[in-house]
């Protein structure tokens, strides 16, 4: 069972929910938490597990071999991303624009654009008590999160069987990295805050999940601030509200120290427990 925790707006509590829910569930179930916010993974700050595996991750980028090239121009015409261009008698490749689709390389009649691995980041696996934790981190200067997210999900599929509850801490927003991080989830939790900003971005996230035909539910974090518009919206749109997490200064204090919150605040633990029950019920019903 795969659960993605996404948000639309940033800073609404994806990581807080992910690490607390994962740690709580791991007390009684097989759980792996995966931080897919590869541009700035931060779940690890709260997990602090023991490193048990690390590997470099690569993407494939074409490299121009001048001596073979006949300057036929196929390569730059087939590139949808303008990552390959021809300037007079030169071919230039822009690795930051390349989506590793292989079109230029495969369609080159003289094999003048072989695909070469280029390091884009690293993956690490940790263990903290019964919880497994995987995070990937893009190298500085790398612009594309999607290939690394895709490879991280492949790693999870290979290393954790279907008995595991897999929780994905997704990136914020609604663009390609979020699509990649949620597209194979069985259920998506959208966490938001009850403010006009939260609602605005929540609507975008809801539209995205509907486009992807995902089952999803909403958690309102910091319930009590802002206004009631998020709840009114959910009711009108018939979207289940899984929980209204309390707005409590102690939560922020614990978070700022990198502590898990459910271990210190009983009311919060009760709320996490209810969310966990919801997930376990989904699992039992075999949501697909």
């Amino acid at each position: 069972m795969k659960i993605a925790i996404a948000s639309g707006k940033g800073g609404t509590g994806k990581t807080t929910l992910s690490v607390n829910l994962a740690s709580f569930l791991a007390e009684s179930r097989k759980v792996v938490l995966c931080d897919l916010d590869v541009e700035e993974p931060n779940s690890g700050l709260f997990i602090k597990g023991k490193l048990i595996h690390r590997e470099d991750k690569f993407k494939m980028i074409p490299e121009w071999e001048k001596d073979r090239c006949t300057l036929c121009g196929h390569c730059h015409k087939v590139c949808n991303f303008h990552a390959v261009i021809q300037l007079g008698d030169q071919i230039m490749v822009f690795p930051e624009l390349c989506h590793s689709c292989y079109a230029c390389s495969e369609l080159c009649p003289v094999d003048a654009l072989p695909m070469i691995p280029q390091k884009m980041g690293e993956l690490k696996q940790f263990k903290k008590e019964e919880l497994s934790f995987v995070e990937s981190r893009l190298d500085i200067g790398q612009e594309q999160a999607v290939p690394l997210i895709a490879q991280t999900l492949e790693y999870l599929d290979k290393n954790f069987d279907d008995d595991f509850i897999k929780l994905y801490d997704a990136p914020p927003g609604t663009s390609c990295p979020v699509i990649e991080a949620t597209k194979d989830a069985d259920f998506v939790i959208l966490i938001t805050e009850p403010t006009p900003f939260g609602l605005h971005d929540l609507k975008l996230a809801v539209d995205t999940m509907r486009e992807l035909k995902k089952d999803f539910g909403i958690i309102v974090n910091r319930h009590g601030i802002g206004n009631n518009d998020v709840l009114t919206y959910c009711q009108k749109e018939n979207i289940p509200v899984l929980s209204k997490l309390l707005n409590d200064r102690r939560v922020a204090e614990l978070y700022s120290r990198g502590n898990l919150i459910y271990q210190k605040i009983p009311e919060f633990k009760k709320q996490i427990e209810n969310i966990a029950d919801y997930i376990l019920k989904l699992q039992k019903e075999g949501i697909r």
């Binding site: 991303f81 303008h82 990552a83 261009i85 021809q86 230039m92 822009f94 624009l97």
Partner: peptide
């Protein structure tokens, strides 16, 4: 994506 290089070309 890639408006810059394309216009530059």
């Amino acid at each position: 994506h890639g408006a810059g290089p394309q216009t530059a070309q």
